[in-house]
Design a protein around this nucleic acid. Structure first.
Lengths: 358, 358
DNA sequence: GGTCTTAGGAAAACCGGTTTTGAAAACCCT
DNA sequence: AGGGTTTTCAAAACCGGTTTTCCTAAGACC
């Protein structure tokens, strides 16, 4: 009568091999099969039985059903990675580092972009609250993300990537002071003394710590570290900050830029104004990507260990998942200076009192 | 004795509200609650009961457990999106379109990057074979992706995005011929007659159809459409193809480039060679992004309806999920020409027999 | 008034795993 | 040989939903 009965054959029901099939093929019960395959240390079993289970699993091409595992085991073995902007070319590296390391830990990474609209919020909430993920990797994002207030966040393990939340003990960050030091010292050794900095939005923490680092290094070199302008992390943000920077401090000989995207705007605006790079102004920026070497002129950059960052964030999160108390982490890998053609010795004569066109 | 018994209170077990809680609160059974919330049309129920269930669900903040649904309902309500390279700036737009539309259909999108290494393959296989997703969106990728041979692929609904697999009836593509027409006609109207094309790797279908489009338009204009060079979709690929192009056909006055990334290399190499853009050579490329407007010179581009593409791909996949037979789709939205400064009238005099430096 | 429908919902099986509990078999020892 | 361990598994409950089946009471019909 009812067609719903289990198929008689060990053959799988709808095409997929189930644990029960493996158990049947290796003449044990589901429980033993499960515990063998999951390497349960409390299980006592003959090596030969263990072998039978493993070979049966391999031969049948067994792959556990994620949903069933999540349901029974209370863990989805997946992590969500929330990033603010896929267009920003730094994220792919972080993402790769995270994916790779997550795999090593046996986790899958689910990527979500936080485009600051309602749909994205809902989409992410769905991901989190439907039990699809065990933990969150929160990329640098809006200062007041709706998620941050949510009570669910405190329930779910999470880390902040490149986004410091004071006192959270969950910050995984790069060594921004070190990077600022590398940048400024490079310029200093070339002979620059009047150096400006283009930073990100004031409330974004990675921007703030880069700026702090900049001011600190400048101070230690007895230089004026107050020539700073802020702007959005976009081409136009960089362009407009450049405008303000050179208006206020026309005697700058070098500019240290927060992000490659902004640097594109910087180059563009400097060209419009009529200042040549590096003859009139040197430019150095974060975020080394192939792109940087193909600009006009090719940009001197500071390469940050982004892949390591992604990996470390996953490590930290997996630790938390394992019950360890959260703690702040700073990636030790030092930043690397990639010298191209956008930095050079300053010309001895002061900048022409700019023939600005805008 | 056993602490495993269900908590007495309607209060949820581990913090999450379950269907049983909703059922209890609205004085019905799980089955009714489930069917009400899922809008089962075969269910007969009083409007008042229906209301009770909905309000209980809302008040308790009920969100179904994805794993349980996947297990019981045989569908994970998630789609996987496989893209070849996150660094390529066109993908974020496709991704956004896909995410957005998927949400409207009640699906979540899981993003995976196909970095052509074993780890990525494994990671993707895991995603697919563990039953985490119901269908696949396969972005333009390696000609011989391991997945393509897999028997599982034929079991799982899927579409190819910007990647034509002949006869699959599952191709969702842009109107490349139209785009080639827009590009070439723009150049033609400016007065260009000797036009070259930098295409992608020969075996990549979107590149091939762009090239076919190019040749067809050129032919229809009675022009020589054979000046084509191929190269990888990278900055260096663009640079090297440029080198070959101008060596073989030194009299070209315009170049039509496949991707923005390649275009960066094109600009770079032309500058090295000593050819000015647009004075000596005009350059037009695909993929409009903010970046294009900040290059030196700002690039004239053809903006493709990438968001629509992502959305349409999801639509097509969801149709298949609903049982509809697969069919090829071409996005109707016409490409848009964004004129900036990299295209201009050709100078009447022939190109100087290049003062090449490389 | 008795039977037949139909509306409205209860019960239970099932999805594919994990984990606790319990018990048979093998081993050890005197 | 008999009792106590230890090995080695088997059984069954459970995770949180979906879906089929079945039951009951109220209205319809004659």
């Amino acid at each position: 009568m009812s067609e719903r009965h289990r198929l008689p054959q060990g053959a799988s029901a709808n095409g997929r091999t189930r644990l029960a099939d493996v158990a049947l093929a290796s003449s044990v019960t589901k429980s033993v099969a499960s515990r063998v395959l999951n390497q349960d240390p409390t299980l006592q079993v003959r090596p030969e039985t263990r072998r039978r289970v493993w070979t049966a699993a391999r031969e049948l091409g067994y792959r556990p059903h994620a949903g069933a595992r999540a349901l029974a085991g209370q863990e989805a073995r997946a992590l969500a990675l929330l990033i603010p902007d896929l267009n920003n070319p730094v994220y792919p590296r972080i993402i790769r580092g995270a994916y790779q390391r997550a795999r090593e830990h046996g986790y899958v990474v689910l990527l979500a972009e936080d485009t600051a609209d309602h749909a994205a919020d809902e989409s992410f909430a769905e991901l989190v609250e439907s039990g699809r993920v065990d933990g969150l990797l929160i990329g640098s994002a809006r200062p007041a993300h709706p998620l941050l207030g949510s009570p669910r966040l405190s329930l779910l393990p999470h880390v902040f990537v490149t986004r410091e939340v004071a006192g959270s003990q969950r910050n995984v960050t790069l060594d921004f002071p070190a990077a600022s030091t590398v940048a400024v010292e490079h310029l200093y050794r070339l002979g620059h003394r009047r150096i400006g900095h283009i930073s990100g939005p004031k409330e974004r923490t990675p921007a703030a710590s880069r700026e702090r680092g900049f001011r600190a290094v400048m101070a230690s070199l007895q230089l004026d570290g107050s020539c700073v302008e802020h702007g959005p992390f976009s081409e136009s943000g960089g362009a407009e900050a450049t405008q303000r920077l050179v208006s206020r401090w026309p005697d700058l000989t070098a500019i240290y830029v927060s992000t490659l995207t902004q640097a594109l705007g910087v180059l563009h605006r400097l060209h419009q104004i009529g200042l040549r790079v590096p003859d009139d102004v040197s430019v150095i920026t974060y975020d080394d990507l192939p792109l940087a070497g193909y600009l006009q002129p090719p940009l001197t950059t500071i390469a940050m260990p982004l892949v390591d960052l992604g990996a470390a964030a996953v490590d930290a999160l997996v630790q938390q998942l394992g019950g360890a108390p959260p703690e702040d982490i700073t990636i030790a890998t030092p930043p690397t200076l990639i010298v191209r053609s956008s930095t050079a010795r300053p010309t001895t004569m002061p900048l022409p009192q700019a023939s600005r066109r805008t």
